[in-house]
Design a protein around this nucleic acid. Structure first.
Lengths: 249, 249
DNA sequence: TTTTATTTTGCAGTTTTTTGCATTTTTAAC
DNA sequence: GTTAAAAATGCAAAAAACTGCAAAATAAAA
């Protein structure tokens, strides 16, 4: 039996019964418990189900959040989020931007770390609310339908009144010469405000976005203090970013 | 039975009956009392319910737990939301409160109506974003974990700077003599601010909440312009609200 | 086709989590 | 104050999860 096939079966059973026991399904499919355990681990990483002690349960069973079934290049984004987590300390005050990568960061924040998180992203706020030791502070404003973040004068004004230790931001396009750029002017205005209110700015970006640019500019590349991609920091694709004063993770 | 599943069952029972006894649920689920005790302890730590001597009680009507797919008395709430929809006109500027009833209102707003909606509720904002002709403006502030709405000084300040045609609000408790009351002081402060910024205030409440009260007061009953329950407006349960200047739908 | 590299799988040992029981402490009702 | 029920605590058995490793299966390359 193919691995894909087996995982699909697992998903089907979970959808059908809302839950699954590792021991049950291992016997049914006649493979070792370890294999099923690994399958469930993978499916959980892909947000296809929720792994629990002894088995797995359907996402619909507990969560009522929007089904973000297939996020583009999720694995890379998870890697980035995990690296970003190492920057967090108990008591940190941070800002978390919108976008799938930042959402993944929010999702992976451990339950025991004590943080104050500002965000203007509704999905990020939703994720953060599940973390018992995180204080969530929402930046209000007009909400952009596509990006599900607050934008506009009100959001920018609210940002002008805070100061955070770290901001974790995404970007549409990044280039070592042209800096961070976007397709959308409103988004750029908010990004500027975010960078302004941060002691340190951390850019989260998959390598695919490197050396790309667009119409409107959020900031110069050296406005970024730390840059995180899914790549090994030594990777040559990052070379053009080294002569700047940027820490690469 | 999986631990996660068991805890979800406990939450469901608490939502349904507003309270549980440890001994009862232990027998029903056929596990030891200690296990249930530990479950309740965990759920309490996660602010999913309130642990009390001998069992647990629901956090209250104001709070809708994050992970709960079966909304208490959904059908009644849908009826209420449908009545509320008749008040909306193209171009209206409204405020939508948090809570399951208001969430249902947001969900049922037709796709073709053009509205400007303010809200301090994250789930409501999420719903409204799916409506193509609705402009969503989020009221920021510290977010309450249980109720998933912005509260605190910042939220109240933001509310002080707007004026809406209608606000649709929920309440924990309502009584014709004591007015609208809540379990939670912070929530009351926000409700006051909402009512202040509204030309007209519409109360959405299931009849079960009629003639109940709690510690903190949001407003007098005649601060309400329109009151909507799932009952027929002629129903005698609403009699005590008639001598006030309230429109009953 | 054969060989090589990569992925997948099962196993053994270790660590962690869960659970029920016995004992002590606390709570609340009388 | 007395007393019974409930909660907290410590403990041990059982189940499950994780780790590293080697064999098997599969894919890729020669």
């Amino acid at each position: 039996m193919l691995k894909e096939e087996r995982q699909q079966t697992i998903l089907n059973v979970v959808e059908l019964h809302n839950r699954i026991l590792i021991t049950d399904i291992a016997e049914t499919l006649d493979v070792s418990i370890d294999t099923i355990r690994r399958d469930i681990k993978e499916l959980d990483a892909d947000h296809k189900l929720k792994k629990v002690h002894g088995g797995a349960i359907s996402l619909g069973f507990t969560t009522n959040s929007v089904k973000n079934n297939n996020i583009y290049k999720l694995e890379q984004k998870t890697t980035i989020a995990e690296k970003a987590l190492t920057l967090l300390k108990d008591g940190s005050v941070i800002f978390v931007d919108g976008g799938t990568t930042c959402n993944e960061l929010a999702r992976l924040i451990p339950n025991d770390i004590e943080l104050t998180c500002f965000t203007h992203s509704i999905p990020v706020a939703m994720e953060l609310l599940t973390k018992s030791n995180v204080t969530v502070i929402l930046i209000g404003g007009q909400v952009s339908k596509e990006s599900q973040i607050s934008i506009g004068a009100n959001a920018i004004h609210n940002l002008s009144e805070i100061k955070v230790d770290y901001s974790f931001i995404g970007t549409g396009y990044v280039d070592s010469y042209y800096g961070l750029t976007e397709f959308d002017w409103d988004i750029v205005q908010v990004k500027k405000a975010i960078i302004k209110c941060s002691k340190k700015t951390v850019l989260l970006s998959i390598s695919e976005k490197l050396n790309s640019q667009h119409r409107y500019k959020s900031c110069d590349i050296n406005a970024i203090n730390t840059m995180i991609t899914e790549l090994n920091p030594e990777n040559e694709l990052l070379n053009s970013f080294r002569n700047h004063d940027i820490r690469i993770l």
